[in-house]
Amino acid sequence: MSSAVSVHELRKSYNGLQALRGVSFEIAQGEIFGLLGPNGAGKTTTVEILEGYRERDEGSVTVLGEDPATAGLDWRQRIGVVLQSSSFYDSLTVAENLALFAGYYMRPRPIDELIELVGLEEKRDTLVRSLSGGQRRRLDLGLALVGDPELVFLDEPTTGFDPEARRRAWETIGSLRELGKTILLTTHYLDEAERLSDRVAVLRDGQIVALGHPTELTSTLPATEIHYRRNGQDVVLQTEEPTKVLHELTTEALAAGHELEGLEVRRASLEEVYLALTREERE
């Protein structure tokens, strides 16, 4: 099966500053691909080149079989975009905004189905200007899906959400997976990338420094950590052989008849991988 998105050696400079320094990745159809990185790493530049908003300097880009720099309106029928900033017609209601944008597409999704999908049933006939930030973001997602696109770009879709709103947004994005959509998600929240993405690329200073399934990435840090408390002191053991070390610890504790307080065994999280990857720089 052909890729939904194919990026090869993508380069872009602004006023002599290299924002993208040879970025390459592929996104399969139906895949949720997370682009992760600190601010200024080049996430938005990459996404906006793929959306056709910005021109690239070098490299090749194919999105749904076309070059976004020259793709026409037929191509726009097949993509959905959530931009970093929410913007609508404030003097129209939620349903009116969706209906206006639905009219631009050949096969729009039914408005009420969309409203349900993004959880705005109670705000259907509310003017957009009186929605909360989280509700606006959900309407954003609704507008991105109004044309029933094959590929959806989500640029930091949950930035500024409270935990409850984020959980709801994750459910919605998860339900897109069931619809078979291909999704390119940018985020600087690691838990979000880990939770939603099939694969994650970590972008740093315009280059991809890691690419793979979230669990593959965490396996690049070898150690498993064993935490417990002894005599009020926190003890952290890093080991390549967690089974053996844990067995020795528990045997010893059992023999001595004391409890291993706060015992915890865990793999490195994506967060630690990410921090390690984005820290080793500027020597």
Binding site: R76, V81, S85, Y89, Y104, G147
Partner: peptide
């Protein structure tokens, strides 16, 4: 400035 025009550019509206 509020991004509505940018959003419109991503749609198939000519």
């Amino acid at each position: 400035e509020n991004g509505v025009l940018k959003r419109l550019r991503a749609t198939p509206l000519p």
